[in-house]
Amino acid sequence: MALTLDDATLDRIDEIVPPGTSLYSPDGAWRPPSLTDTAQRRRPLADRAAG
């Protein structure tokens, strides 16, 4: 099934995100909390193996 957007819709999209704008940020502007919050990456000390 094909989707065709009319000119008004495409113009509105261009108003929201101007042509040529890159939404990709290689510097990592947003990172999930599971990567940035140490508490979410590690088990509690009492639950860790004493290896």
Rank of each mutant, 00 (worst) to 15 (best):
G28K: 10
G28P: 05
G51D: 14
R48L: 14
D14I: 02
D11W: 03
R12N: 01
T4I: 11
L3Q: 03
P33H: 08
V17L: 01
P44T: 10
L45Q: 12
W30I: 11
R42M: 14
S22D: 14
T38D: 07
S22N: 15
E15R: 10
Y24F: 15
R42V: 12
I16K: 07
R41Y: 05
R48V: 07
T38Y: 03
Y24Q: 08
P33M: 12
P19L: 03
I13H: 01
A39R: 12
L45Y: 14
A46W: 06
P44C: 04
P44Y: 02
A2H: 02
Y24I: 08
A46N: 02
I13G: 00
R41I: 00
P19T: 07
E15S: 07
R31L: 15
D7K: 10
L3W: 00
A49W: 09
V17W: 04
P32V: 06
T36V: 06
Y24R: 12
D7Q: 13
D14K: 14
A29M: 11
T9F: 01
P33C: 12
D47T: 08
T9W: 00
D47E: 15
D14P: 00
P19E: 09
P44D: 13
R41W: 02
I13L: 11
G20S: 02
A50E: 15
R42D: 13
A50I: 09
R43L: 15
D6E: 06
S25D: 15
A50V: 11
A29R: 11
R12M: 00
A49V: 12
R43N: 05
A8I: 01
I13T: 00
I16L: 13
R12K: 04
Y24E: 09
L3Y: 02
P18E: 02
L35M: 12
D37I: 06
W30E: 07
A2M: 05
S22G: 03
R12Y: 00
M1D: 08
A8V: 03
R48Y: 08
V17I: 15
Q40A: 14
I16Y: 08
T9R: 01
A49M: 13
Y24T: 15
G51Q: 10
G20H: 00
L23W: 03
S34R: 10
P18V: 01
R48A: 04
D27Y: 10
L10Y: 01
A49R: 11
D6R: 06
S25H: 13
L23G: 13
G20W: 01
D27R: 10
L23P: 04
